[in-house]
Structure formats: structure tokens, C-alpha cells
Design a protein around this nucleic acid. Structure first.
Lengths: 348, 348
DNA sequence: CCGGTCGTTGTAAACGATTCCACCAGATCG
DNA sequence: CGATCTGGTGGAATCGTTTACAACGACCGG
């Protein structure tokens, strides 16, 4: 692999001149420039990003640590993060924490060792000391989706409160009164927040949220299945199960099916996070959709602002309710084709 | 951020000694070692991976260029690749080509610029000159899932031939005679290969594969939908549609549903690539499952072998047919709970 | 004709690590 | 007792860039 020296030799100039051409510094003659460009072309030269990073102390790389790549919500988030970053001239390195704190730490450490310019993280389980230290030490950082209270780091997230209210209204209108929730880990903000919003919304309709109707999940399908089984074993099982993420909803669906019961006839189901597949499940699942692409975009912009010295800002975008059939038919029958399929790319 | 010099100063030794301790070189006294370790601890020192890479000419990083992150098959592949790489002491940088050649090129270029130690790629559309040059120039490379003929690069992939035969046998046994396929792009090996296997299997049952029954797709949901619509518009529509990947199958499902038709009563559906969601669709989809995790593992091992100077080997693993309900009820009714749910983690 | 400015160029010093080589003390051996 | 080896150490070169600084010729105005 040829280096800048080879190019300099081939073009008959010094390495400094080559470097200047490459970074289009103004003071280089047209003649020198064209000779350098020709040499670059001839040798197929590409600057070594490693050396460049060492010298300039910037990698033009962002780290993204997400909780679970297999979760379509995070996949989509990762994708939009990469898109926006690319548009802004940055690369992204993704670390999958798999909801495991020690894996999250591993990735944060690795990314920091690589001297990424900034870190986007959706913290798995409270914050690791490592991450907090990095933030305090001045590593540009932005939380996305989830965050850690009391840390001075911008947060980009969706507010599901209004959508959860809308969901409860919808359920109430359908005549449901015994509503249960499968919560995420209490240590995550999204875990606790969704329960709170749910409880609050129930309160407005004078409905209780007994402890037995709060299942503890971990955002994985299996935990959704187990929580649902426990609900079904209750003397008075709930009429509705609201899963705090899409994977747990799937587990719930499994559990219901394994009992030979049917959604929504025997028990209704709703989920937080809308994903393309919910259109095709049996039955299609009513869900709360986050503006995932916009979230990714906003997060990158905030992080890059911070990196490039502009003041970053926290962003909160509203989530919205998408009604399908898993909670029962709404009074006014909806035309089947009215709902545009989210399978299609939602790119502009 | 403290550097090796700071550590050396704090420990009262030279940078050479610090480096030796860090790379646990044998010839360093117990005394010096403990002083260095103490200093490292005190300063919270972490070696700069960028500098290290520049000097040693290795990044301990693998590049993975996949065709589409939103496709669960590739997501799972990416995950297993990262897991195996991590176990072997490597990091992975993922590039999403989104089935677009120019994006693929962008990522390959970026990864090469970063001097990754090796490249894992599932080529999108024929090979770009860039990639081929890199392979010729000696960049360790392994193709996964798809490959490019005539290039001397190991290939790790699943062979679907036997499974496609099994599928056709299954369909034939159910009485289906008019079978259609939605193919992937002809430029990809998986695109053409699956059609060939299908045609061959049909031949064994004396069934034709007329051109009208070959839909051209691009591995995206929308193309599956369009191809299916065209099938349904035919004077004599097929009885079965076999989609060459999971996204196109979803598009097909959409198209069928939009016409007010039902699977499998009006038309049967099968797919290449099994994904967890196929258990939950309406109806559950019969699919050909690839050993995705093993594929990812084998690919990483082959690549790392190549990087570390051992002879890499190509690997071909068999795919298998997973029968569900989308092609009609099999003669012998199967117990609903007999099929273990692939939703559960298949980690060991 | 001389001093200053300007545009273009090269030399060399970083960046933070690894590693070759030389050196030195102390142990070992003939 | 002198030669040789051995384990521990530091100095300095090196990786491929960027960039401060100095140098240099041309040009211009006084």
C-alpha cells in the first residue's frame, strides 16, 4: 500500500505539498496540484486514516452503543444514525450491548480506546461508572431512547405519555377494564417511564393497576412470555396485556397461543414500539410508534453539534398510537387498506 | 487523556518499559511491573488504539459489509459475526450497503482507509472493481452468503439446494402444480442460484417453470408485492409463490391480503430465510432456514485464519425446510406446540 | 535599487505507541 | 580472574500523516 511519500516522490514534490493538495489548502500552485493528483491516481493512493487520526486527534467516527441489535426498533435506529452520520461526513461503529451491562462496558471501552469523536448511547442498566467518567472527562456524548438521570448529557428520545393515554382511552372505549402491563427493567428509563405513564392514564379512568398486573420483563421475548403466563394463571386474569416493547409483545403472543387462547377474543394485546412485522402478525398488533428515523437523525445532529463546538440540544419527539386489531374491533369498522403499510420504506 | 509518557513519568521508568509491561513482554522486573501497573491504575491510562495500530500495522478490526441491515437474516448474521470476532479478540465495523452498489463501494473504501485487518462481504451486485482490486492486492477477504464467481476468495454460505427440493416435494404432495418464484437480482449468486435450484426441483416432478412464473425482485418487500400482483393478474395465476427472501415474502403477503385473498386457501406462500417473525404471521410461513449463526461463526474463523497466516477454508452448510401453515395443512396434522419457537434465543 | 509582501515550497517536529539495539550489572563458567 | 552470557533497561527510530516555520524567488511601491 503506497504512502504519501511514494506520491511525493512520484510527483517530484515534498510530502507537505501532497498533504496540502489532499486537504485542499489554498497555497499550492496549479502545476504542483495537477502533478500530485496524477501521482495519486497512478498509484491508487488512499490516505491512511489511522495516521491521519493520530496526527489530527480526530477520527471522524461516532460510536453507537445500543441495547439489542435483534430488536427491529434498534436496528432501524442504527440505520438512521448511520445515514445521518454519513451525510455529515462521519462513520459509525455499532456496539451491541445485548441488554448486558458488562457487554455495554466492553463496547464503551473499546470505542473510547479507538478515540471515537463522540458516543451515542442507549444505556442498558443504569449507567456504568466507565460511561459516566467518560462523560465527565469531556467525551462528547448523547443519550438516545433511554437516559440516565442526573448526568449532564443531552437526551434525544420519544415521549410516549400522550400515546399511552390515547391507548388507554382506546382500550377503555372497547370496554376493557382490567389492564396489565409487562414492564421493562426498572433501571432503564424507558422501563419505568412507560409503567408510570400507564398507571397515570389508568388513574384518569378510575382504574387501578394492582401489583399482580405488573409483570417484570427485560425487553426480551422470553420474559414477555413468562409474564403473560403468570397473568393467565391469575384467578382473575387481565383483559388486556400491554407490553413495554415489541419483543416482549411477541413473547406474550406466544404464551397466549400456547394456551390455545386467541387474541383479541380471549385477551387483548398492545405493544410499545411499532415495527413493520406487527402488520403481518396474527392478529395485527396495536402499537405505539416512535419516530425512530427522526430520533436517530436528531441524536446524530446533537452529537455532532457537541463535537464541533456548537451547543447541543436535547430533543423530545412525540410517539403516536397505531390502532390495529389486537385489542378488538373499534366501534367504527376501518377499511383494511386505509392504513398505509409501514413495510414500505419511510425514507423521504 | 494520559499517554504512555505520563505513565512512564509517574512510574519512574522509560516508555519502553511501560510498553513492555502492557504487552506482557517477559523481560521486565517484578518491581518495575508493579510500579507501572500502579501508575496505569492511578492515571486511568488506556493505550491509544490509533497509535498502536499505526505502529503495528494491525487494527484488530474486521469489516463486515452486508446488503441490508433491516433484513433480520443479516441482522442475525451481523450479530453472530460480532460475537465470534469478539471471542477472537477482534472488533467489527458494519457497513450497510442497502443493496446499492455505490453504498457498498463507499463502505469498502472507508473500511480499507481505516486499515481493517480483514473484510467480510456479502456482495450486493456483482463485485465492484474496488473490492476485487483489494482482494487481488492481498487484503484478507471472505465472502459470506453471496459470492462472486471467478475470484479467489473463500466463501462461507448455506446450500439451499436440498431444502428447495424438500420444499417442492412438500408442495407437490399437497397437490400444488403451478408454482411461481420471486427471484432476487440475477447479479447476486443467491438471486440466481435459488431460481436454478427451484427449476431443477420442479423438473424432477415434471413441472414447468414458465417465464411468467418468474418474478423479478430485488430482495426488498416492495418488489415482492409487485411481483405477486403481477402473478395474481395472470389469466392462470400460480397456486404457490416462493419468495427468494423473507422481505419479498412479506411483500407478497401484503399483496395477497390487499386483494382480499387468503393464504394458503387462495394461494400458498413459502420463503427462503427463516426468521422469528414467520412463526407469528398470519398464517405462519413455511420457510427454508439457514444456519445463520454458524455461518457467521465460520466466516469469522475463515477470515481470521487468513489474517493470521493459516490457510482459510470455504464452508458450505446445509439449509433445511421448516414447514408451517402457509402452503396448506400437511396430510398428518401437526400438534401446534410441537414446533419449538425460534423466538427463543438459540444461543448455546 | 532596496525593503517588504506574497505565494509557493520544503524541512522537521510532532502525534502515541512498538521495538531494535546498545548498554550495564550481576551471575556463570572455564 | 577474565570472558561470556543473561535479564533488565533506556535511547531512539519508526509508522504515515499534518502543520508550524523558514526559505526563497518574484513582484511591487517608494
Amino acid at each position: 500500500m503506497s504512502s504519501i511519500k511514494d506520491v511525493a516522490a512520484a510527483a517530484g514534490v515534498s510530502v507537505a505539498t501532497v498533504s496540502r493538495v489532499l486537504n485542499d489548502h489554498p497555497s499550492v500552485s496549479a502545476d504542483a496540484r495537477s502533478r500530485v493528483l496524477a501521482a495519486v491516481e497512478a498509484l491508487g493512493y488512499r490516505p491512511n486514516a489511522v495516521a491521519r487520526s493520530l496526527r489530527t486527534d480526530q477520527t471522524r467516527t461516532l460510536g453507537l452503543v445500543i441495547s439489542d441489535v435483534l430488536n427491529p426498533y434498534f436496528t432501524l435506529l442504527a440505520r438512521s444514525v448511520e445515514e445521518e452520520a454519513r451525510a455529515l461526513g462521519y462513520s459509525v461503529i455499532i456496539g451491541n450491548a445485548d441488554e448486558r451491562p458488562e457487554l455495554q462496558d466492553h463496547h464503551v471501552r473499546t470505542l473510547l480506546d479507538r478515540r471515537i469523536d463522540g458516543l451515542l448511547v442507549s444505556p442498558t442498566c443504569g449507567g456504568s461508572p466507565l460511561m459516566l467518567d467518560a462523560a465527565k472527562a469531556g467525551t462528547p456524548m448523547v443519550f438516545v431512547d433511554r437516559w440516565i438521570a442526573g448526568v449532564d448529557v443531552p437526551v434525544v428520545r420519544a415521549d410516549g405519555r400522550a400515546a399511552v393515554h390515547a391507548l388507554v382511552a382506546h382500550l377503555h372505549a372497547l370496554g376493557h377494564r382490567r389492564l396489565a402491563i409487562i414492564a421493562g427493567p426498572a433501571a432503564t428509563t424507558t422501563g419505568s417511564e412507560r409503567v408510570e405513564a400507564f398507571r397515570e392514564a389508568l388513574g384518569e379512568y378510575g382504574l387501578p393497576l394492582p401489583d399482580a398486573y405488573i409483570g417484570q420483563g427485560d425487553f426480551q421475548a422470553d420474559s414477555g412470555r413468562r409474564a403473560t403466563e403468570r397473568f393467565l394463571d391469575l384467578a382473575e386474569p387481565p383483559e388486556v396485556v400491554f407490553a413495554a416493547d415489541n419483543l416482549m409483545a411477541l413473547g406474550a403472543l406466544d404464551a397466549v397461543r400456547d394456551r390455545g387462547l386467541r387474541v383479541p377474543d380471549d385477551i387483548a394485546l398492545a405493544a410499545f414500539d411499532d415495527i413493520p412485522w406487527f402488520v403481518h402478525t396474527d392478529p395485527p398488533v396495536t402499537a405505539i410508534a416512535q419516530p425512530t428515523r427522526e430520533l436517530g437523525r436528531a441524536a446524530v445532529r446533537a452529537l455532532v453539534d457537541r463535537i464541533e463546538g456548537r451547543p447541543p440540544e436535547s430533543v423530545t419527539l412525540p410517539a403516536r398510537l397505531v390502532v390495529r386489531r389486537s385489542c378488538g374491533e373499534p366501534a367504527s369498522a376501518q377499511a383494511p387498506a386505509a392504513q398505509p403499510s409501514p413495510m414500505q420504506r419511510s425514507m423521504p
